[in-house]
Computed example of a mutant assay.
Amino acid sequence: MTTPAAPSVGLLAPYTGDEMLPLYTTTVAVSGGEARHARASGRVVSDDGHLDLVLRLPKALGGNGGGTNPEQLFAAGFAACFHGAMTLVANARKIRLPEDIDIAATVTFGRDPTDGLFLITADLAVRLPAMDAGDAAALVAETEKVCPYAKMARVGMRSTIRLV
């Protein structure tokens, strides 16, 4: 299900409303598969059907591999969102992005020394080899302010978990 079209707001223009202005909403459902454990044998399907993947526990975590996993999905989303935000910023600033731009997200699932449970870390590596280093650094810094994944990583996000 998608959110109805929001009023036209320039994507980089400041929004001054009192509440979040939804621009797009999607729902992805996960089932547990034969192991009744989504991480090990699940299936992920988006409400529009365009995303339909099997989930498999990576070999590094004791699984058989053979499918994607939540960390790969998060890394793909983060890198794609940052790339898109960088394109918006570059266009607004009349900066021509080089064709050889490369953004790689490395996501790590690990143990949290604070509580002994689990945590996710993410590192983004942005390559802009054809750009002046100073210009590239300024573009990346501005993009980090615009990209919602970067903001979520920096300050957290509102989320709810409810039993239905």
Score class of each variant (00 low, 15 high):
Thr3Phe: 13
Pro4Arg: 08
Val9Tyr: 09
Gly10Cys: 02
Gly10Ala: 15
Leu11Gly: 01
Leu12Ser: 07
Tyr15Ile: 13
Tyr15Ala: 03
Gly17Ala: 06
Gly17Ser: 04
Gly17Pro: 02
Asp18Gln: 11
Asp18Arg: 07
Leu21Gly: 10
Tyr24Lys: 08
Thr26Gly: 14
Val28Ala: 10
Ala29Gln: 15
Val30Cys: 08
Val30Met: 06
Ser31Glu: 10
Ala35Ile: 08
Ala40His: 03
Gly42Tyr: 11
Arg43His: 13
Gly49Asn: 02
His50Asn: 08
Leu51Val: 15
Leu51Met: 15
Leu51Lys: 10
Leu53Met: 08
Val54Phe: 12
Arg56Thr: 09
Arg56Tyr: 05
Leu61Val: 13
Asn64Arg: 13
Gly67Lys: 09
Thr68Asn: 11
Thr68Met: 10
Glu71Lys: 12
Glu71Ala: 12
Gln72His: 09
Leu73Glu: 07
Phe74Met: 10
Ala75Asn: 06
Ala75Thr: 07
Ala76Thr: 04
Gly77Phe: 01
Gly77Met: 03
Phe78Lys: 00
Cys81Thr: 01
Cys81Phe: 05
Phe82Tyr: 14
Arg96Pro: 02
Glu99Thr: 11
Glu99Arg: 14
Ile101Glu: 06
Asp102Met: 06
Ala105Arg: 11
Thr106Gly: 12
Phe109Leu: 14
Phe109Cys: 12
Gly110Cys: 06
Gly110Thr: 09
Arg111Met: 13
Gly116Phe: 00
Leu117Met: 11
Leu119Glu: 14
Leu119His: 15
Ala125Val: 13
Ala125Lys: 15
Val126Ile: 14
Ala130Ser: 15
Gly134Asp: 13
Gly134Ala: 14
Gly134Tyr: 03
Asp135Phe: 00
Ala137Ser: 12
Leu139Met: 07
Val140Arg: 07
Glu144Lys: 05
Lys145Arg: 15
Lys145Phe: 02
Cys147Pro: 04
Cys147Ile: 06
Pro148His: 05
Pro148Val: 00
Lys151Ser: 03
Ala153Met: 15
Ala153Glu: 05
Gly156Glu: 02
Arg158Leu: 08
Arg158Trp: 05
Ser159Asn: 09
Val164Pro: 14
